[in-house]
Structures are given as structure tokens and as C-alpha cells.
């Protein structure tokens, strides 16, 4: 669409800008202020310069949490993206079945995040949980409070359960926007199923998939409530992710300075990743427009 150059559009943006600035800019400034001081209260505080940043960057527990976070995010992406595409491909497209499946698939997304944790806690407990009990009956010594492997596997399974629907629904909507004529043409060419997927469906999915991967990466990067309820970050610290480390430090220990420095480092990682994705999305839209023109 050809957009008109008009700076009066700023007036339409203004209310939103003020509101978001209130809930984003002022807090962010405060975080920056905290990060260079040792704050006891508003009147008792000491300037520390870059001390907290140095401490946080060299803290082995936090370094481990960052690596764990990346490992977790990449793992869930590697599972959820192909699975989501697969589910989108087999979802019925017409009739009451389509609506029913759509609602059922969406369901996990609508559950408060700590309830998701509770659901899986109940589901996986060895004594009262169907999954935990079944695995034990089958002779596997399943125990998420003692075995880090079990805890990790369960959290990943929970995340797959919780968020694969997002990818599936995104892809489903991408697939629905492909005109029937494309499929008919493919049928005339006797194109194999794989060829249809590779040359018709996948190109159409790329756009929605970039959005999906971005959203998924970001949400998995700030995961908090689900593992907190399910494992509490344990056993040990094997499932303690960044948000939980941060929340423990900020709320639990009231260490304003260090947690603010940590917040800023966390935020910078997010900023870089978001920027890379955003640039990719924008360049893709530009290419699309050039092809249409």
C-alpha cells in the first residue's frame, strides 16, 4: 500500500505513546538508575559505577542460567516448529470438525501460565499423576524432584504441549490463504506431496513462521511461572531460567542494584534478537512488495 507522508499522524499515535511510555520508559530509566547504585532506600544509597555489571557478568550461576536459557529456547523451537507445521497440515479445513479442532487446539494457550504448571504438576506426580504413575508402573524410576533429566524432559514436554498450538495456528492461517488454484495446478502436474509442500506451502508459510519463531523465542526466553510451579527451578538449579533468577534476586532478596544490572543485560540480549528478527521481517515484506510491483 502506498502510504502518504504526513506528520500529523503523530497525533493519532500520541495517546498510545504516552501510555506505553508511562509503563515502559519510566520503569526502564529507573532500572538504569538502580543499576549504578547500592540502594537501601530513597535516601540511603551509594554510587557504585559499573561494579554490579562486572559482578553480574562474571557470576557463574547467571552465566549458567543464560546458557540454560538458550539451550531451552532452541530445544523447544526445534521441536515446536516442525510439529506445529505438521499439525497445521493435518488439521481439517472445513465443517464442524474444523471449528472443533481449532477450539481444542487453542485451549492450552488460554490457560493462565501458573495453572499450566499446576496441571503438569498434578499430571506428572508419581503418586497421583497419570503420567508419573504410568511411567513408574512401566518400571521407569521417574522423579522430577531428583533427576535433572526427568525435570528437563518434563518441562520441555510441558512447553511443547503449551505452545505448539501457537505455531500450528499461525501455519494453519498461512495455509488457508493459499488459493485452491495452486493445489489444482499442482495436481495437474502430478506433483508429489513433498513437492506441493516444498514449492507451494512452505514459501507461503515463511512469513508467518518468522513471526511465530520470534514470538516463540521471546516467550520461551521469559518463561517463568510454568517451571516455577512445576519444579521450582530444581533439582538444584538445573531448571532455573533467567526470569526466575532475576525474580528471586529482585523480589526474594531485594538486591536492587545487582538485579537492575542483570535486567539490563537480559534486556540487551532481547533487544539484539528482536532487532535481527524485525529486520528480517521488514526485508521480507520489502521483497514481497518488489515482486508485486
Amino acid at each position: 500500500m502506498n502510504k502518504v507522508y504526513n506528520n500529523r499522524a503523530w497525533w493519532l499515535i500520541l495517546p498510545m505513546l504516552l501510555l506505553v511510555a508511562f509503563s515502559a520508559v519510566i520503569p526502564l530509566m529507573t532500572v538504569v538508575n538502580y543499576s549504578v547504585q547500592d540502594v537501601f532506600d530513597a535516601n540511603t544509597r551509594f554510587f557504585t559505577g559499573t561494579e554490579w555489571f562486572k559482578e553480574m557478568l562474571n557470576d557463574p550461576a547467571l552465566q549458567a542460567a543464560v546458557l540454560r536459557q538458550f539451550a531451552f529456547s532452541l530445544t523447544v523451537l526445534a521441536i515446536e516448529v516442525p510439529l506445529g507445521i505438521g499439525i497445521a497440515l493435518i488439521m481439517p479445513k472445513k465443517g464442524w470438525q474444523a471449528s472443533a479442532v481449532l477450539i481444542l487446539v487453542t485451549m492450552p494457550l488460554l490457560i493462565p501460565w501458573n495453572v499450566v504448571g499446576s496441571i503438569w504438576q498434578i499430571f506428572t506426580r508419581g503418586d497421583i499423576g497419570l503420567m508419573g504413575w504410568s511411567l513408574r508402573e512401566l518400571g521407569y524410576g521417574y522423579n522430577i524432584t531428583a533427576s535433572p533429566v526427568d525435570a528437563w524432559a518434563t518441562i520441555i514436554l510441558m512447553d511443547v504441549w503449551h505452545w505448539t498450538p501457537l505455531i500450528a495456528l499461525l501455519c494453519f492461517s498461512g495455509l488457508r490463504s493459499i488459493p485452491d488454484a495452486y493445489y489444482q495446478a499442482a495436481r495437474i502436474d502430478r506433483a508429489s506431496k513433498w513437492a506441493v509442500f516444498r514449492y507451494i506451502q512452505l514459501p507461503k508459510l515463511t512469513n508467518v513462521l518468522v513471526i511465530g519463531v520470534l514470538l516463540r523465542f521471546m516467550h520461551s526466553f521469559m518463561i517463568y511461572a510454568e517451571p516455577f510451579v512445576l519444579t521450582g527451578g530444581g533439582p538444584g538449579s538445573s531448571t532455573t531460567f533467567l526470569s526466575q533468577s532475576l525474580t528471586t534476586m529482585a523480589i526474594g532478596q531485594q538486591d536492587l542494584g545487582p538485579s537492575a544490572a542483570f535486567s539490563l543485560i537480559y534486556f540487551l540480549i532481547i533487544l539484539l534478537v528482536t532487532w535481527v528478527f524485525y529486520t528480517a521481517i521488514m526485508n521480507m515484506q520489502k521483497d514481497d512488495n518488489n515482486q508485486e510491483a
Partner: peptide, 15 residues
């Protein structure tokens, strides 16, 4: 603004 605990360096930074 007291609760935002401003310092000179951060004020300069945002300015």
C-alpha cells in the same frame, strides 16, 4: 521523582 533515585551520570546519559 525521588523514588527514581537519579544520579548525575544517569541523568547525563538520558539527556
Amino acid at each position: 521523582m525521588e523514588w527514581m533515585v537519579w544520579t548525575t551520570p544517569t541523568t547525563v546519559f538520558f539527556a
